[in-house]
Amino acid sequence: GTVHVGDKTYHFPTPDAAKKFAQEIAKKLNLQVTVKNGTWQVH
């Protein structure tokens, strides 16, 4: 899975790992999470 946070991109071996990371970052930074075609965006 891929997660975009601002101008950074993180790659994870599984979709679940990407989802978990995106949700944790969003919670920590009080941001929104959207997913499109398996790519997570934190914004």
Rank of each mutant, 00 (worst) to 15 (best):
G1S: 11
G1M: 10
G1V: 08
G1C: 15
T2F: 08
T2E: 07
T2K: 11
T2C: 12
T2H: 06
T2L: 09
T2S: 09
V3S: 01
V3T: 02
H4D: 05
H4M: 15
H4L: 14
H4P: 00
H4S: 08
V5S: 02
V5P: 00
G6C: 14
G6H: 10
G6T: 03
G6I: 08
G6N: 08
G6S: 04
G6L: 13
D7Y: 12
D7G: 14
D7H: 14
K8P: 01
K8G: 04
K8E: 07
T9L: 12
T9G: 03
T9F: 13
Y10W: 07
Y10R: 02
Y10V: 04
Y10T: 02
Y10D: 00
H11T: 09
H11W: 13
H11S: 07
H11P: 03
F12A: 00
F12Q: 00
F12W: 03
F12M: 02
F12I: 01
F12C: 08
F12V: 01
F12E: 00
P13L: 10
T14N: 09
T14C: 07
T14R: 03
P15K: 14
P15G: 10
P15R: 15
P15C: 13
P15Q: 15
P15T: 12
D16L: 08
D16R: 09
D16N: 10
A17S: 09
A17P: 00
A17M: 13
A17F: 05
A17G: 07
A17E: 12
A18D: 00
A18T: 01
A18K: 00
A18C: 03
A18I: 03
A18N: 00
K19N: 07
K19D: 07
K19V: 05
K19P: 00
K20W: 08
K20L: 10
K20G: 05
F21V: 03
F21L: 01
F21E: 00
F21H: 01
A22F: 02
A22G: 02
A22W: 02
A22T: 01
A22E: 00
A22M: 02
A22V: 04
Q23R: 07
Q23Y: 15
E24N: 11
I25E: 04
I25Y: 06
I25C: 09
A26I: 03
A26P: 00
A26K: 02
A26S: 06
A26V: 03
A26D: 01
K27C: 13
K27E: 11
K27D: 09
K27F: 07
K27I: 08
K28F: 09
K28Q: 10
K28H: 10
K28S: 08
K28E: 09
K28Y: 08
K28A: 10
K28T: 07
L29S: 05
L29N: 07
L29M: 08
N30K: 07
N30Q: 08
N30F: 05
N30V: 04
N30W: 04
L31F: 07
L31I: 05
L31Y: 07
L31W: 14
L31H: 06
Q32C: 12
Q32I: 14
Q32G: 07
V33L: 11
V33T: 06
V33K: 01
V33Q: 02
V33C: 09
V33H: 02
V33P: 04
T34W: 05
T34S: 13
T34F: 07
T34P: 01
T34G: 05
T34L: 06
T34E: 07
T34V: 07
T34A: 06
V35S: 09
V35T: 07
V35A: 08
V35Y: 15
V35N: 13
V35D: 07
V35Q: 12
V35R: 08
K36W: 09
K36R: 11
K36P: 01
K36Q: 11
K36S: 12
K36I: 15
K36D: 11
N37K: 05
N37L: 05
N37A: 05
N37D: 15
N37T: 03
G38Y: 06
G38R: 05
G38N: 13
T39G: 11
T39R: 12
W40Q: 04
W40L: 11
W40S: 03
W40G: 03
W40P: 03
W40I: 13
W40F: 15
Q41F: 15
Q41P: 03
Q41I: 15
Q41L: 15
Q41W: 15
V42T: 04
V42N: 02
V42P: 04
V42S: 02
V42E: 03
V42K: 01
H43M: 13
H43F: 13
H43W: 09
H43A: 11
